[in-house]
Design a protein around this nucleic acid. Structure first.
Length: 425
RNA sequence: GUGGGUGUAGCUCAGCUGGUAGAGCCCUGGAUUGUGAUUCCAGUCGUCGCGGGUUCGAGUCCCGUCUCCCACCCCA
């Protein structure tokens, strides 16, 4: 035997036993997004490296040490997308979707970050994202959050909590940044090397530090909310009012700053304590300056992203019932002639009853072994074809989930009999 | 990148102080000459993560390396 080739670290295979759960979750998200009037957008997983540097920010961890960046055969620097927003903004500008238009969009797919794998954190992971362009008021901020709340409800997820903050405009954010640098610089001695480094590179991130000895310092730091400009403050108040009216419970977290540079004004996170150290299940916010920064006209924008792996874990914990994806009918056919006939019969059944899944036994086997497979397939009904049935142009019909007596049905009556049995079931 | 744990059959795991591997599940066949999910019987499945070292002898001890898990960091 040759040496095994293994998969890539942090990139997992999704086995057939797990895909029904994924399909269920993705289906709920798609349906709800479409129901709110959002349309799907699909863009490539590879973009020019420059795109992410300019949008996410040069000094963020993502850009500095987590990107899968490589040169293609032309010597161009390309990067596997570490997040989705940048590519969507690029493509929306490039295709004219933002030219005197508003857009409500969603998309889903794999993202790539070179991190050390951990619970809820992988090198290839999947997101479901929503992005909105051209809406300035807090009503759309509220709608985005209401949409996520509905998603939790339909997925059966309970242990999540909404945290809100406002980062203000770029100008008020810069003003706050300066105050913060001043404050922490005065306490320089109590910072470790890493945080001292951050002080100049990305001071807002200091507020996120989990170091226990940092906590008193952070608690006493100037609050971003106090530096907020009036327009942002009004917007933020408007959002809170709408959420309260809609019955959405939230808490204000003045230290919620987000790790990507492009966020402005509203930011929010749905967090949980059920997933180990990775608490954010869904996060997002406004990025009013990004479109312009990437070469488009000034356009207000807001979006959020859900981590599907984390979402799936939450759905598992909630034990939400998931449709199994079994066939409804399993054709048992013993003998070569019966096997041939079963294949044809099954095609007729599929044409007449497209709403049902119909699996035909393949690979032969005794009645006993074929019934075992029928049971394992999860089918509710077995259609039986042996030499006797073949000779009489009949089939046996057995309900595998109830103790009812097996029927014998003529081929021309089979469609009606199966339909009857499955609908009364 | 740093730290802790881990790796034995397809899966879940046992294997005491070194003497060339075992259980349950799964799968296959049978008990029942054409009927599953229960029961009973039988059978298949392993370069013991990989490489090196110590030893007469290594799944077991030592070193290296990789995987997976968890935490730091960071984030969805």
């Amino acid at each position: 035997m040759n040496k095994k080739i293994t998969g890539i670290r942090g990139m997992s295979d999704l086995l057939p036993d797990e895909t029904p759960l994924w399909q269920f979750v993705e289906g709920v998200l798609r349906r709800i997004a479409a129901g709110y009037g959002y349309r799907e957008f699909r863009v490539p997983v590879v973009e020019r490296s420059e795109l992410f540097k300019r949008s996410i920010g040069e000094v963020t961890d993502i850009v500095e040490k987590e990107m899968y960046t490589f040169e293609d055969r032309n010597g161009e620097s390309l990067t596997l997308r570490p997040e989705g927003t940048a590519g969507i903004v690029r493509a929306a500008i490039e295709n004219g979707l933002l030219h005197n238009q508003k857009q409500k969009l969603w998309y889903t797919g794999p993202m790539f970050r070179y991190e050390k794998p951990q619970k809820g954190r992988y090198r290839q992971f999947h997101q479901f994202d929503v992005e909105v362009f051209g809406y300035d008021g807090p009503d759309i901020d509220a709608e985005l959050i209401l949409m996520t709340a509905r998603m939790w409800q339909e997925l059966g997820i309970k242990d999540v909590e909404l945290q809100l903050n406002s980062l203000g405009t770029p100008a008020s954010r810069t003003a706050y940044r300066d105050r913060l640098v001043e404050y922490f610089a005065a306490h320089r001695d109590s910072l470790d090397d890493e945080n001292r480094d951050r002080l100049h590179r990305n001071p807002l991130r200091l507020l996120d530090s989990k170091l226990p000895e940092m906590q008193p310092l952070i608690a006493a730091a100037p609050q971003l909310t106090d530096s907020l400009d009036t327009v942002s403050a009004e917007h933020f108040a408007g959002l809170q009012e709408l959420l309260t009216a809609a019955g959405v419970v939230f808490s204000l977290n003045p230290r919620l700053v987000r790790g990507l540079d492009y966020y402005t004004r509203t930011v929010f996170e749905w967090v949980t304590d059920k997933l180990g150290a990775q608490g954010a299940v869904c996060a997002g916010g406004r990025y009013d300056g990004l479109v312009e920064q990437l070469g488009g006209r000034p356009t207000p924008a807001i979006g959020w992203a859900m981590g599907l792996e984390r979402l799936i874990e939450m759905v598992k914990l909630a034990e939400t019932p998931v449709p199994a994806g079994n066939p409804d009918v399993y054709l048992v056919a013993v003998g070569e002639a019966a096997g041939r006939q079963a294949l044809l019969l099954a095609e007729d059944l599929r044409t007449a009853l497209p709403q049902y899944g119909i699996e035909v036994n393949a690979g032969g086997g005794s009645f006993k072994s074929q019934f075992k497979r029928a049971d394992k397939s999860g089918a509710r009904l077995a259609v039986i074809l042996g030499a006797d049935e073949l000779a009489n142009e009949q089939a046996g019909l057995k309900n595998l989930r109830h103790e009812t007596e097996q029927q014998t049905v003529a081929w021309q009556d089979l469609i009606a009999a199966i339909d009857g049995e499955l609908t009364t079931d």
